[in-house]
Amino acid sequence: MKKKDNGWRFVIPVIIALGGVALFPFVFSVYISLINSTAYSTYTAKFVGINNYIALFKDANFWNSFRVTLVYVIGAVSLEMLFGTLLALLIDSLPKWGRVFMIILAFPIMIAPLVYGITFKLMYNSIYGFIPQFLRIFNINISLLSTSRSALMSMIVVDVFQWTSFVFLIIYSALQSVPKEPLEAAKIDGAGYWKSVWYVLLPILRPIFVITLIFRVMDTFKIFDQVFVITDGGPGTATTTLSLYTYFLMFNRYNFGQAAALTVTILVIIIVITKLLLKYFYREVEL
């Protein structure tokens, strides 16, 4: 009798590759977070236990970047979900040109976030930028990037502009494959359009919403490129996200130990958030 083929040999190359570039680096990161490592002493540093974590949790800048990231994630993702869904409903009601609209609306997601950041940096410029000039027509005179609140809001706007398309695309193609009979039945029963969307369509789409939500939360949580190029975390630390603060610890302070402690913390936070989202929203279908 031949030994049963369990297929591991097909999976092993990927396990080795990811073990080398993802798992080992992460374990290494955990190790660095436990030593007092700087750029100059990575290999000679001493074991300091959880001191880096204690220092991190006492660091006001860490809590600030955590708060900035949360505001950013909640603001950007909720607006993207709302606009993306409305847009999907709109395009879904126009079947004739739906495909064309879909392709044109998908442009933003193929473009580097950095390029979007650069574009908005130009459009936000307080002297010759398009947006301040446009607002001046309505007698609104603000310098978008110079106050804490408006700078963070401006960053959220960049993300919403680029990634509403992502939500649109997924919800739209889900709408295409949803059976339309329940919706028609609700209409015949006299429910208005919005009422039938709310009570009939949205519950059907619930699993899709959760997947979209998780992807957007995961991606906004790691936000770096646009903020780095537009404000570099400023004014002050008003737009310093967790990724930006880690970068700062690594390459401005050269405090590798604390930076590593921060990355381990970030990973724990993102895993907790994903698990919570899955637990509370994801019942019907398995991932």
Partner: peptide
Amino acid sequence: TRMAPPVVFALPMFL
């Protein structure tokens, strides 16, 4: 590994 922000791998990969 896709979920993890790139910043998690940045420092160890750099070293």
